[in-house]
Design a protein around this nucleic acid. Sequence first.
DNA 1: AGTTAAACGAGACGGTACGTCTGGTCTTATT
DNA 2: AATAAGACCAGACGTACCGTCTCGTTTAACT
Lengths: 209, 209, 209, 209
Amino acid sequence: MIQEPVVQEPAARQGGRQRDPATDSAIIEAVLDMVAAGATLTGLSLVAIAKQAGVSRNSVYRRWKTKDELYLDVLATINEPRPAPDGAGTREDLAAVLRTLADRVVDVRASSVLRALNAEAATFPRLHRRYFEEIVAPRREAMTAVLRRGVERGELRDDVDLDLVAELLVSPLLARMASGSTDHLDPVRDTRRIVDLVLRGAGAPDDDA
Amino acid sequence: MIQEPVVQEPAARQGGRQRDPATDSAIIEAVLDMVAAGATLTGLSLVAIAKQAGVSRNSVYRRWKTKDELYLDVLATINEPRPAPDGAGTREDLAAVLRTLADRVVDVRASSVLRALNAEAATFPRLHRRYFEEIVAPRREAMTAVLRRGVERGELRDDVDLDLVAELLVSPLLARMASGSTDHLDPVRDTRRIVDLVLRGAGAPDDDA
Amino acid sequence: MIQEPVVQEPAARQGGRQRDPATDSAIIEAVLDMVAAGATLTGLSLVAIAKQAGVSRNSVYRRWKTKDELYLDVLATINEPRPAPDGAGTREDLAAVLRTLADRVVDVRASSVLRALNAEAATFPRLHRRYFEEIVAPRREAMTAVLRRGVERGELRDDVDLDLVAELLVSPLLARMASGSTDHLDPVRDTRRIVDLVLRGAGAPDDDA
Amino acid sequence: MIQEPVVQEPAARQGGRQRDPATDSAIIEAVLDMVAAGATLTGLSLVAIAKQAGVSRNSVYRRWKTKDELYLDVLATINEPRPAPDGAGTREDLAAVLRTLADRVVDVRASSVLRALNAEAATFPRLHRRYFEEIVAPRREAMTAVLRRGVERGELRDDVDLDLVAELLVSPLLARMASGSTDHLDPVRDTRRIVDLVLRGAGAPDDDA
DNA sequence: AGTTAAACGAGACGGTACGTCTGGTCTTATT
DNA sequence: AATAAGACCAGACGTACCGTCTCGTTTAACT
């Protein structure tokens, strides 16, 4: 799991001043703020981050050798695991799974980081892989599980491509995250509307025959 | 329209060597290639672009004072207008409109630029606005027109939010563009499948009542 | 001799527009003015000279391939030969020879060029050699001739080093040229005073024994 | 006095790495060497100096914002004050004062810098003024004092222009410095000969009447 | 309490890239 | 063919960072 930051504990501890934990978070906050303000992952430098955090360069470099490692810890901050939906019904379960995503999309700093990460995946392969393993994959599995159960329950057609359905459900939120048009998004209402429309379809009933 | 590049024609022409048009395109190609290779809009420098284009710095700065202006011309390159769908039927028209988008998504260089532009919208507001006016808005109108006609024809329900339907149709492609997972996308097949699923819905028929 | 400029006559003259002789002198004047204004020989560029002369770069490069060649022609402009003194008397002859030098020292443009040339002798060896052969050597010979005649006539001691006497006579003017403190120099009066003092000496008569 | 270089001490010293004093002198040495090798004051760039000194550009710019300021410190290096002559006799005192100058003339680096400075006085007015105040003026006063005392003692005529005598004494050395023909100069012997000749005069004794 | 060791801010340092400017060459249109 | 205008490449210059390093200072653990 990503939960545990990789800030290296210095080996043997026999004396000396302690690291200020406030510095750790000040730096990570600085990254989140700057990225949310439009900075690029590549464009950010440890120096600039230090300045924004009100901390000496030294204090940043002491903790992370590279931006890559720092960003791993930043990414860990974003992931906020949720319990699996309770299985009340397919419609509600889908909405619940989507909510997890929608909440992150609405969080400006989180969505900014993820948007930046997508745009620069090639530059940060390790970071991008981690993003997939820790954030994307679990959600996808949760979604798939709900969909499969929906078919079993007879609440979903059994002749549809579930992967496509999942993509259809998730994409509106992802697209908003990608474009940054996150303002008018109401996590509760909009996830509900998306689920409804995907389940019901937009075509006229006759048209289905 | 964006079609006409803004490369400034120097005022009065009475003598002097002519600008090499090959240089213009070499520079724009360089930008497209570098962005497709993972570069950031902010991260690119006119110097690096010149190097990649095999052109002197001077020749770049002579044409564009800022990256912003250069990118405007790059963006113009991407926009490839398509005729409106012929109106054979809602299903076919929707697929046709989506195709325009899907083709751009599949084009690595185009989608890379747009992905980068989305990620750095804050840094290039003028560019982003232009992107909306010239590329996004026309497609959206085309899509809306088709949908409205579908309702009039009775091929679409009249109780659905057409904006949401449009978003549902478009988002899978946008999301792929955003994440760069563009490899397995088949413009013809996949647009068809998306349209079908959105029209028909994924829910079991009984469930609709 | 330096008198004949080395401006290359274009080989065969078969037709086409004629060179504008005004351009030649405009360029040389430009050099003189710029050097007098403080420019360095190395620091001047043909481009800057063209601009100052109000002439296209082309027109300069067509005439002189290098600064070196151009400066040779500039130097030729400075040398203004004078007839040998008439031999009325040593005192008058010395003053006459010094006058030639003093007049050049007073000419701001000439002295500026020579001062610059001295400072950058290492960079323009050919030019510096030419300067010696064409300007310095003739004057020195003239001076030596007058001094030798003075000894023969019994107007000068026969136990002094004539080279040193010559140096003593010439140096005040050269030093002024070198330092640029040329303002308060009156060629007629000051050469006279220098000659008088050198002949007579500053020591009290008794002191000589 | 000029003795104290103007390398700016950053105001408050509370921390940070110390400047390497070896870097200071390496840079100044570089300037002296390059000017002695024929470089122009204007032509030198802080970049070239840094390269020659084997130091990063940064380290130069950190110390001096402009060439002007750097050259002030270079000039300070050249000035080497001497005690006033002891007053044994006018002849000896004059020789002693001239020696100070002759030694500087013989020092290739010092004379190169001063020659360059004279040639480019217009470009570096502040530097040139300083040169006068710190180097020229004191020597001139020393010289004048000796001469005046010579008159009082009856060792010099009382009807000569002492300023002219001073100029006559000093100019041969200055002229050599200006022309760079410094090789065959023997400070001890030549100053002596100059003083002797100026005191005694070159004219035949009868000629004075 | 004194010693030791590390955290911390400040800033020197070498290196690299950027955008500007200029120099000399080449090309085009005009005279 | 000479000229003016200007595109073009090459390279230097001064600036701005970046990441490393070395200081002097402060804080905490361990004698």
